[in-house]
């Protein structure tokens, strides 16, 4: 096995690089330090070339660009053909994909085409100096973690959960190589045609993008103060499953195993007890504050600052004092 280098499939939608791509460049850069390899970004799309520099600024040493109208919007087969041809030509050791509805469609198709292993939805990646990848993923509702290896096949492939890995600081001065690649598409395999594409309209600020989350659980009956506090802190409101199931807020805002994974700079949990499924979605947050009346609530085991108090009352008070002293 002479395969070398760590590839990141850089997902874009409408020509916009998705955050998960930058997160993957971040973790790939960490891995590359151990394996002593290059980080290579794969940028596939139409009229996408000019974005390549941005990927270098976030950690890519090399960017392979395929700019073709067949890749304008995501459809499995053209994308699979492009990645397959590049992988056969360059023989990477590792390929990482975001565990999104695109990555989770493309990566398994490729694993069967390239006859190699794939590990889904990883939340931790480590490597040894021989270039072996250790892929850790939650199993059985987050109750158990399994570390998976792919010892005898290359490339080693993994989809990685969005919001878990850390981006590098953007560095516009980083140097890297941009290579434009041509693909021989076999159009006779393009059986699926896109009749229309409709973007969802949602006025909910994405919780996975927020720097500060004011998160509410069962202990909060009225979430209006949470929205006011979040507004003042330039953050947004998220919720535990209990509140979503109760119909208090929409599923877009749910954090946890069956919701979204978030890692804001500050996660302020009000009235959330911290079921393991919830913790799985937010434990990577930089700074966790928990307020709950039950001093035995599991959330206190991971909070950097735990306060035993009436969460609804604290939220109201917080709204008052941030208003009084606009900071």
């Amino acid at each position: 096995m002479n395969n070398k280098n760590i590839w990141v499939f850089c997902e874009q939608r409408d020509g916009v690089i998705q955050d998960v791509a930058l997160e993957l460049l971040g973790v790939a850069s960490e891995l590359a330090k151990t394996t002593n390899e290059k980080v290579c970004a794969l940028l596939l799309g139409s009229k996408i070339k000019k974005q390549a520099k941005e990927l270098i600024a976030y950690g890519a040493d090399q960017v392979l660009v395929v700019d073709h109208k067949n890749l304008e919007t995501f459809v499995t087969e053209p994308y699979a053909q492009a990645v397959t041809q590049l992988a056969k030509q360059y023989e990477p050791s590792i390929i990482l994909f975001g565990a999104t509805s695109i990555g989770r469609d493309l990566a398994p198709r490729l694993s069967a085409r390239l006859k190699t292993g794939l590990t889904a939805d990883c939340t931790k990646l480590e490597a040894d100096e021989n270039g072996n990848l250790f892929m850790t993923r939650p199993a059985f509702g987050g109750n158990l973690f399994a570390t998976i290896i792919c010892p005898d096949h290359r490339p080693q492939m993994s989809t990685v959960r969005p919001g878990v890995m850390k981006k590098m600081e953007r560095d516009g001065k980083r140097k890297g190589e941009i290579i434009e690649c041509e693909i021989n598409f076999d159009q006779s395999k393009f059986a699926v045609s896109v009749i229309e594409e409709v973007k969802a309209c949602s006025n909910v600020a994405k919780i996975e993008d927020a720097k500060i989350l004011v998160s509410c659980g069962r202990g909060i009956k009225d979430i209006t103060p949470a929205f006011e506090v979040a507004g003042k802190l330039k953050g947004t409101v998220s919720a535990s499953r209990a509140l979503v199931d109760a119909g208090v807020t929409a599923h877009d805002r749910q954090v946890g195993q069956t919701g979204k994974t978030v890692r804001p700079d500050a996660y302020l949990a009000f009235g959330i007890s911290g079921a393991i499924q919830h913790l799985a979605g937010m434990e990577e947050s930089e700074f966790i504050v928990a307020v709950n009346t039950d001093k035995n609530a599991p959330i206190f085991k991971i909070a950097n600052l735990g306060i035993v108090s009436d969460a609804a009352a604290v939220l109201k008070q917080l709204n008052k004092i941030i208003e009084n002293k606009p900071c």
Binding site: G117, L144, T147, I148, E283, I302, N304
Partner: peptide, 16 residues
């Protein structure tokens, strides 16, 4: 191609 190397239950290591 993939093998399970190890399994573990959840560990927490935050300053609390």
């Amino acid at each position: 191609p993939t093998k399970v190397k190890s399994t573990a239950t959840k560990q927490f290591d935050k300053t609390i």
